[in-house]
Amino acid sequence: MCLAIPAKIESLDALASTAIVNLNNIRKEVSTLLLDEVTVGDYVLVHVGYALERIDPVEAARTLAMFDDMQALGDTE
């Protein structure tokens, strides 16, 4: 179950613990109750109207770089 999709935080309402997220210019209010620290510009995984977790940009870049390394390996074979 677990349809969750990364969307970018555009604005935060700290009092209400909500954020407006943007996914391809679709804007939706989500709850940020489950996260300690979120900042405008963060990407969060959205599931049933809640931000579950931040996407770590460094780790994401590392995973992508790994794909490229594999590609390089694959190419030499």
């Binding site: 996914l23 990407y43 996407i55 794909f67 594999m70 590609q71 390996l73 190419d75």
Partner: peptide
């Protein structure tokens, strides 16, 4: 879609698949 589209690249997929095949 950031963090979605990059992870759906068909060419890269075929390359990882080749690697799996070889291992």
């Amino acid at each position: 879609m950031k963090y979605v589209d990059e992870f759906r690249d068909g060419d890269k997929a075929r390359q990882i698949a080749e690697l799996i095949q070889s291992e």
